[in-house]
Design a protein around this nucleic acid. Structure first.
Length: 447
RNA sequence: GUGGCUGUAGCUCAGUUGGUUAGAGCACCGGAUUGUGGUUCCGGAAGUCGGGGGUUCGAGUCCCCUCAGUCACCCCA
């Protein structure tokens, strides 16, 4: 058939292909995340990409509702692609908690979709690595959430990051005591910009847009402007004149959270108490977590979460409080690539077998499979190209060891093991089970 | 979603006031070296100038629309 006009191959805005080199890095991050989650006893679950619209909407905020991909399916149902993994989890918990029991600790690594404008590290389709604890209000769950974030970043090779922590009850309590409850969401949003636009602009907005009095604003600033070591911040916050029980509960929880982290060995320099942050989605009710890389704060938080005690209430009358966080895999990877802290190579196989001549095909197949049985990852070149070209290919793809067995070696019953980084080659006896070869390769790889 | 900037070979970019056949470096393929890569030399292939329309004798260059990237706002992983 003749192609009259070719269709331009392209992807949608904010949607991307992933090439082998990137994909190996993505999978390495996923494996690491999985390992840390399991170390804390979280189990995997999965939920559908598509949910009923009514499940998804009205849980985050008006803004986030606008970003949900929505359409009518073939049966005329109003459906949407999941915007995050937390709302589907709330639905999941409401539906299955009877079978599973509480506390439910689960993790989920999956794609989510947001129809917003793109930017570096912000895509319309991206992977989130969530972990949550459902069905307990214990502060231990909050502490462990922060611990997982901490361990996770370390395991991913990020040494320099800061875990920003706050508790929503402090701000909402304070605002309530100022009799401005109705504007809580807007006030939180304005305050959140403090570090970005500065005190003056925030003050102006609070006065003019929110119609707060100067006294109200100055009380808010008294709280957000407390600086110093974590202990000191907590001490000073307690002395604020205007407070109520919610405010005090928030402070107490925050204080317990901090001392729990210290007890678990998290160094203070990675924990940053910030009484002005209130972000995250509207459903957060207690602890709030955000994680910033020291070298790239502008890319935003790479792992965020918090406590949400009422999320499942729209689906069930059971009380299902939860706490958890979400690692933004694609955002973190974008940051790591920008910082050059990713390792290269586009092959997962450390061993490369040179294919000399068709008459030795079965020898190569045999060697390959014996090495694989010994736990090595092995790629056999598929055609008898010139050895120089094969080595060039192996070098470029990032193989560590080349096994060279041409006619000469095979008649002698040996083969050559070449380290592609150093260029050093050694002759090794090619015995029946390849034991000597395997041993030599493993020794070489270990250094 | 609104606004700014950008789009030329796989990648990074040149391309004059609009003027013949659009260039370079790196990467790729082949050879020098018919059994040894990452150095060198020689050669080769590769471009709908993001796409569409318009102005013009003539458009990579000017205008409009569109798609994508990027930045800011907003929001967030």
């Amino acid at each position: 058939m003749y192609l009259l006009s070719l269709i331009t191959p392209r992807t949608l805005k904010g949607f991307r292909d992933h090439l082998p080199e990137t994909m190996l890095q993505r999978e390495r991050l996923i494996d690491t995340a999985r390992g840390v989650y399991r170390a804390y006893g979280f189990s995997p679950i999965d939920t559908p990409a598509l949910e009923y619209e009514e499940i998804l909407l009205g849980k985050g905020s008006e803004e986030t509702d606008k970003q949900v991909y929505r359409f009518e399916d073939h049966g005329g149902r109003r459906v949407g692609l999941r915007f995050d993994l937390t709302v589907p989890l709330a639905r999941f918990a409401a539906q299955h908690i009877g079978d599973l029991g509480t506390p439910l600790k689960r993790y989920q690594i999956a794609n989510v979709w947001r129809g917003e404008n793109t930017q570096k590290g912000r895509y319309r389709e991206f992977v989130q690595c969530d972990f949550d604890t459902i069905g307990t209000q214990s502060i231990v769950a909050d502490i462990e959430t922060a611990l997982v974030i901490h361990d996770l970043l370390l395991a991913l090779g990020c040494e320099n990051f800061k875990l920003h922590i706050n508790n929503r009850k402090i701000l909402t309590g304070l605002i309530a005591s100022l009799e401005a409850e109705e504007q809580i969401t807007s006030i939180l949003r304005i305050l959140d910009k403090l570090s970005k636009v500065g005190r003056d602009k925030v003050e102006e907005e609070l006065l003019s847009r929110q119609k707060l009095t100067r006294d109200q604003v100055s009380t808010l600033f008294q709280l957000t402007e407390i600086k110093g070591a974590n202990e000191k911040i907590l001490e000073e916050a307690k002395t604020l004149p205007s407070r109520n029980s919610e405010f005090e509960t928030g402070l107490a929880e925050l204080s317990e959270l901090i001392s729990g982290l210290t007890a678990a060995g998290v160094p203070e320099h990675r924990v940053h108490l910030d009484l002005s942050i209130a972000r995250g989605l509207d459903y957060y009710t207690g602890s709030i977590f955000e994680t910033f890389l020291d070298a790239m704060p502008e890319i935003g938080s790479v792992c965020s979460g918090g406590r949400y005690d009422h999320l499942a209430e729209t689906y069930t009358k059971k009380k299902l409080p939860g706490v958890g966080a979400s690692l933004g895999l694609d955002r973190l990877l974008a940051a790591m690539q920008e910082l050059g802290s990713t390792s290269g190579g586009s092959t997962p196989a450390e061993v490369f077998i040179v294919y000399f001549a068709a008459e030795h095909r079965e020898e190569y197949l045999k060697i390959s499979s014996q090495l694989r049985r010994a736990g090595l990852r092995v790629e056999l070149y598929p055609e008898p190209k010139k050895i120089g070209q094969q080595l060039k290919y192996a070098n470029r793809r990032g193989h560590k060891i080349a096994v060279i067995a041409g006619g000469d070696e095979l008649t002698q019953g040996t083969c050559q093991i070449k380290n592609l980084d150093s260029g050093a080659a050694t002759q090794v006896v090619l015995d029946k089970g390849c034991e000597t070869v395997i041993e030599a390769i493993k020794k070489d790889l270990a250094m």
